[in-house]
Design a protein around this nucleic acid. Structure first.
Lengths: 360, 360
DNA sequence: GACGAAGGTGAGAACGTTATCGCATCGGCT
DNA sequence: AGCCGATGCGATAACGTTCTCACCTTCGTC
């Protein structure tokens, strides 16, 4: 009974077994056109008996739709993307779409390749979290070829596609102001960016930053700068560190910040892995948080409440960002036309215990 | 120039533009058969000029291979699966395969549906983390139909497919023994299982447990029981709690454990989200860890070192599990035949500060 | 009783590739 | 000179569906 048949059952086989034409069998199985009760019964019975499973590949071939959405994320290890993915996955699966996933690990080369692969797989749509140095032309080419694209967490200059995210500049402005209000004057940021942007970020030139291909960390740094400038505080280049996205990078960053002649009294970190690294780095340096140095982070990870000290964070509605991106994509697939939508979801500052007044 | 053409360029167009036959153009573009330098150049040039992108769907149609691996996980929110996914993704993408992801959210119904979808998508192989109540017959049907399947983290009785994971019984035995060695006699476990298994788990009957469709939590609980029995300690049903997989479930569990007439002096939790929940629950109950209650967890999450207190855990080589699963699958795809492999990777007990001697 | 609309059916084209086969050409060998 | 294998090439079948079209039946309506 457990026939190890590699040869697959096709509609043709089912049609023959049911004594109807291929067209009728296909209609009954595919649920389109009109089929009589009697035929439908015969076909269903034959299909069950033969163990027929439809071939999506052949179906896609002719319909032109693969019922597949490509999702390209920068780093699957990042808490942010995990929850985004969850939201995306939930919405898509309810709508009968599947998800093919690519992890670029922050590499522009891999991103280019993934984009090509997605195109040749004929995905119906694309959710994309572009790397810092995204190939805008390539993304435009994909969008122009008729595949709807939704960008996560950032807009790309000169690219008219939908995007979903938060107001990054306002969010970091809010976080910085929160620190300023508590009396901090020496505030550092751990951005996560790589060496290629370090100079730009350190420059303290807001205009230049906002032009800088609008990366998440660029805009967030701009918000920080605007806040401290508004408070009449001079920019200290050494307070803006961009030495990488990994936990260990942030750990190093925190240690080095504390070794500065004039170390900061507060630190802001731009994602949950960086939060963690900074916390470790402070521990390494023998600095107590928040008594000696305050810390405010981005992203409310499940562990944020349990670390020592419980972390004050800017919480993004992460899963909702993913869900909304998926819904936006489905709307476009459903024929919605019109100007690109730039959804900005609200953030929430969650006060816990990692921020205190500066010592002294 | 930015032609918004929806009509796609095909090999036929390229062939015509290059002045060669379709077969030759296809050979040049597909990189098979033999093509002269001259033809190849003409074809490549024409393809570039027309903006040709190959159609994987059509290719799959004829070759029978989609270069796609289906990955079905129980809960994408779980740290364990995130890292597994990372390992899988890395290995697969190096081998030129893509990954279609399904998240069952621990639902057998969704798992069944996902399995059907994967089949009809004609994935080349499947990596599956079956739910507790997996439909073995369905999985067998998939495997028998010629699609290689690799199981994550557990074997299924009567199912001859490859699997990758750890020695769950030995691991929890080790963790329990670690607690026993430090003088604990009242040890509770937060398993994460649902109500449907609560009775079985509480029963304390090792034989019955090991027969219980071999779930991860079943085997882990068995290891725990064997360890305390070997130490001559009577089983206390209330010490085995199975009230759900979420962080909040574990939080409740810990609170209730501490309300018992005779509360445990140590708790073991079976995954990183549960670890977190227990830690919070202890905090809610006003119980200090490890002074009053010790905690040992499974999975070394990035935050395990930073929580208060730093967590002693059984670390699984999570990413390596994913990578190995993917490699095993690729081997089968490469024609490896022979008996199913059950890879068991070593775990590591990482001592930090959440375990102390019991008070008094 | 004629007519149109609607429901049901089947034959065959179409989707865009790769596989199969047969034919030509070209060296290098006997 | 004749033969052989290797290489290059083209015409066409094939993959498993859905789509298009034409046709037939049935039924209600004027």
């Amino acid at each position: 009974m457990a026939s190890e048949v590699r040869s697959r059952v096709t509609v043709i086989d089912v049609a023959r077994a049911a004594g109807v034409s291929v067209a009728t069998a296909a209609r009954a199985l595919g649920g389109y056109g009109s089929v009589s009760q009697a035929s439908r019964r015969k076909v269903d019975e034959a299909a069950a008996r033969l163990g027929y499973t439809p071939n999506m590949v052949a179906r896609s071939m002719i319909t032109g739709s693969t019922k597949t959405i490509g999702v390209i994320v920068a780093d699957i290890e990042n808490q942010f993307f995990q929850l985004v993915l969850r939201g995306v996955s939930r919405v898509l699966s309810e709508a009968g779409f599947d998800l093919v996933l690519a992890n670029t690990e922050e590499s522009i080369e891999v991103e280019r390749r993934s984009l090509r692969v997605m195109t040749s797989r004929r995905v119906d749509g694309l959710i994309l979290s572009p790397t810092e140095v995204a190939d805008v032309a390539q993304i435009r080419a994909v969008a122009d070829s008729g595949i709807p694209v939704v960008l996560l967490d950032r807009r790309l200059r000169g690219l008219k596609v939908d995007s979903v995210g938060i107001r990054n500049r306002a969010a970091s402005h809010e976080a910085t102001t929160y620190l300023l209000d508590r009396g901090h004057r020496q505030i550092a940021v751990v951005t996560g960016g790589g060496a290629e942007h370090a100079e730009e970020l350190r420059s303290g030139n807001v205009g230049r930053l906002r032009r800088m291909s609008a990366t998440t960390l660029g805009t967030r740094t701009a918000g920080y700068l605007e806040a401290i400038e508004a408070a009449g505080i001079a920019h200290v280049p050494d307070y803006v560190v961009a030495n990488g996205f990994r936990q260990s990078d942030a750990r190093t960053a925190a240690r080095e910040l504390m070794r500065l002649p004039q170390p900061p009294t507060a630190i802001m970190a731009f994602d949950s892995l960086l939060n963690l690294g900074v916390l470790q780095g402070l521990g390494d340096a023998g600095v107590r948080c928040p008594d000696q140095v305050s810390l405010i982070g981005f992203d409310d990870a499940p562990w944020a409440e349990v670390v020592d000290p419980p972390l004050t964070v800017i919480a993004q509605p992460t899963e909702e960002i993913g869900a909304l991106a998926a819904r936006q994509l489905l709307d476009r697939l459903g024929g919605e036309s019109g100007a690109p939508m730039n959804h900005r979801l609200p953030v929430r500052l969650i006060e816990r215990q990692s921020v205190a007044r500066p010592p002294g």
